Simulated assay, not measured.
Amino acid sequence: MSPADTIAVVGSINVDLSAQVARHPQPGETLHGRGGQMTPGGKGANQAVAAAKLGGSVQMIGAVGTDAQAEVGLSGLRAADVGLDGVREIEGPTGLAIVTVAEDGENTIVVIAGANDAVDAAQVTASREVLEGAAIVVCQGEIPRDGIEALPALVQGRFLHNPAPVMELDPAVLRASDPLVVNEHEAALVLAQLTPEMDPPQQPELIAGALRAAGIASVVLTLGAQGSLVADSDGTHRIPAAPVTAVDTTGAGDAFIGALAVGLARSESLPVAARFASRVGAFAATGHGAQPSYPGSEDQLPQLDGAGA
């Protein structure tokens, strides 16, 4: 990719503390587990690493603490050759995610923001030059609201917005998303902000259509094992999921988004980029952890059938 194809990722940098269990515990229950490894994570860092390992030219804007875990949090970004000029060091702890993975591959995650709380409007604005020059700017919901709301005024390329977790945002920020990438639960929460008078529809095609009718230019609705659905000015497209056996879904959604950013930076259409992202996200679910499970080459990826876009 040329410098004009730069992907800027604004978001969280965490350390993941991982445990494997036979099943998730019930409230008040104690179970034996395995693991205890500390690995690099955070939705922002995950998406940046996924994009960079696939050949993207990526700049990270975020923050780490002054603790020993900061180097763990940055290790995956460094290994993937992500630009770190926009990453600040903040007095205090680095962000932490406590990840529990059951034998069926499903996970639960508790996130402690730490230094990510410092990625505010002032820090985002300090990276104006990078943001204005990026082909794709990627953001999630693990940084403060004012940091996210500062972005649309600085983005001159495409704003790939993954509001996870969903928070109250200025509706104009949601409408600046192109694409908005959400699962069905997140989509309902976004619709409630944009059209509070509407009962959210249940079918994926209607959900995506309602988001576009509310003023969002393009939508990618992720549907887990059912793949994803893309809606833009060219219509609605079903994207299949690649057939794999999931081992650990931690970070698979972030791999999807990093790959989607790479496809869009290569000037692919949104449906074509989503097909690529589906393959990358599926591959990530076949390995343990987030960043360690991301592919370093397109040759590793599973194939999709001919259905969809």
Rank of each mutant, 00 (worst) to 15 (best):
A274E: 03
G289N: 11
I98Y: 11
G296F: 03
L17W: 10
Q300V: 01
A210E: 00
D170H: 05
I239W: 03
E142P: 06
A282Q: 02
Q303S: 14
D170Y: 03
V124I: 11
A188H: 13
Q59M: 12
A68K: 11
Q202A: 15
R128Q: 15
C139E: 00
M198Q: 15
E29D: 12
G44V: 08
A172Q: 14
G35D: 12
L301D: 02
A4Q: 15
L154S: 08
L169S: 13
A63L: 06
N107W: 04
I61N: 08
A118P: 00
Q140T: 12
A274R: 09
I112S: 14
A118R: 08
A97S: 15
R145A: 10
Q203C: 01
H161S: 05
G65V: 11
S269H: 10
V173K: 03
V124Q: 05
V101Q: 06
I109E: 07
L264T: 04
A135R: 15
A134W: 04
G251L: 11
T286A: 11
L211E: 02
V64Y: 12
G36R: 01
Y294T: 01
G157C: 04
E89H: 11
G224E: 06
E129L: 13
V111M: 13
H288N: 14
A80G: 10
G86C: 07
L211N: 02
A241N: 10
L54G: 07
E129N: 11
A188W: 04
L194T: 13
G133D: 09
S233C: 12
V9F: 01
L189F: 03
V137W: 09
A273R: 13
A225D: 14
S267M: 06
G41K: 08
A134Y: 06
P196Y: 14
P179E: 06
A22S: 15
M38K: 15
D170L: 03
E186A: 07
E205C: 03
Q69T: 14
V49R: 02
A309G: 14
E197A: 15
Q300Y: 03
D67H: 09
N46A: 08
M38I: 01
V220S: 01
P40T: 05
V230W: 02
S2V: 09
G33H: 11
P271M: 07
S57E: 14
S297R: 03
N183W: 01
L31N: 11
Q303G: 09
E197T: 13
P271C: 06
V155I: 13
G157W: 05
F256K: 01
D299C: 00
V244C: 07
G28W: 08
A122M: 09
V220Q: 02
R145W: 00
L301A: 07
A135P: 04
A284S: 15
M1G: 09
V111I: 13
S228F: 04
N116E: 04
V119P: 07
Y294D: 05
A284T: 04
L260Y: 06
G44N: 07
N162W: 01
T222Y: 06
A122H: 09
S269I: 03
P179A: 05
V190S: 06
D232H: 12
G33A: 15
P196Q: 10
D170M: 05
S218G: 06
Q193F: 02
H24M: 15
P40V: 07
G33F: 07
R88D: 14
I112M: 14
Q59K: 12
T195C: 12
D305Q: 01
T222A: 06
P152V: 12
A231F: 04
R128T: 14
A48G: 10
V262C: 14
S12G: 12
G308E: 00
L221E: 09
A134V: 04
I109P: 05
